[in-house]
Simulated scan of single mutants.
Amino acid sequence: MDYKHSDSLTHLMKSVLKLHRHNVDRLIQEYDVYPGQPPLLLRLAEQDGQIQKELAQKINIQPATLTVMITRMEKAGLLERRTDPEDQRVSRVYLTEKGRMATGKVKEALRTIEEACFGNFSLEEKLLFRRLLLQMQSDLQALPPQKNG
């Protein structure tokens, strides 16, 4: 049988994820939070005052990209950088009061979208879906690294 990408499960999954992100972004834009920023807010809500290198690893982006993101979010009043009191070479990132409020709104938006996505699923279907996603994640992580050159 001929492979037709538009009929593939991965194409459908990509479409669903794109709709998910679009709807989350739509719900949070009024709080000065832009696409790509929610993971940083959520990580800082879990543990405020992390160093940039740790944050970049945790949200899986390049340190330079994170620096640009933090600068933009500082200008919006969501975050602030402070020098580590024990090591002046290290900068730590903290949520501001506005950032904490925005994080609460991000969590509300994610909860709203989660309910929209899975409101018609039974508990058993949700558990099966979770198991299948975890299996996909595991299978993709097990792929051998691509050889360079």
Rank of each mutant, 00 (worst) to 15 (best):
Y3K: 08
N23I: 09
L127N: 10
L134D: 14
A109D: 06
I70D: 04
M73K: 04
L123W: 09
P85I: 06
E30D: 11
V16Y: 07
V16C: 13
R131P: 01
L41W: 02
L27T: 01
P63E: 07
H11V: 06
P63L: 02
S15R: 13
M73W: 00
E114D: 12
A142N: 13
M13P: 00
E80R: 15
H22I: 06
Q141V: 04
P85R: 09
K14I: 11
R81N: 12
A76M: 12
S8H: 09
L40F: 02
V33W: 01
V93D: 04
Y31P: 02
H5K: 09
A56H: 05
H5T: 12
A64P: 00
A116S: 13
L132V: 11
G49E: 04
V93L: 00
L79V: 09
L134V: 02
D48T: 10
E97F: 03
G77C: 07
A56L: 05
A64Q: 13
A109H: 08
S122V: 09
Q62H: 15
S6W: 14
Q50V: 01
E115A: 15
I51T: 01
L95Q: 04
L42M: 14
I113Y: 00
P38Y: 02
P38T: 03
K107D: 01
S91C: 01
H11Y: 15
A142Y: 00
G99T: 08
R21W: 01
A76V: 00
T112R: 04
L27Y: 06
R100N: 14
D7N: 10
H20V: 06
A76G: 09
L17M: 09
Y3W: 14
V24W: 02
Q52Y: 01
D84S: 06
V90E: 11
P39Q: 07
N60G: 05
Y34V: 05
P38M: 02
S8F: 03
K14Y: 10
D139C: 01
T71D: 12
L133R: 08
N148I: 14
A142L: 12
R111M: 10
H11T: 05
P145D: 07
I28S: 00
M69I: 03
R130D: 11
E46V: 00
L110S: 05
N60A: 13
Q137D: 06
L42Y: 03
A56Q: 06
Q88G: 01
P85V: 07
L66G: 10
P63C: 05
Q57M: 11
V33E: 03
V106R: 03
S138V: 01
E97Q: 11
Q141R: 15
R92D: 05
R81T: 14
E125L: 06
N148E: 15
Q37F: 00
G36S: 04
F129K: 13
K75C: 00
L134F: 11
L127V: 06
E125P: 03
E46R: 07
G99E: 08
L17Q: 04
F121N: 08
E125S: 13
M69Q: 14
E86W: 01
F118A: 12
L143W: 08
L128A: 12
R131K: 15
K107S: 02
L95W: 03
K75N: 13
K18L: 13
R100D: 07
S15N: 09
L9P: 00
A102L: 03
A45E: 06
E124G: 03
E97P: 00
V16A: 14
A64S: 15
E108I: 09
P85Q: 07
T103D: 11
L95Y: 08
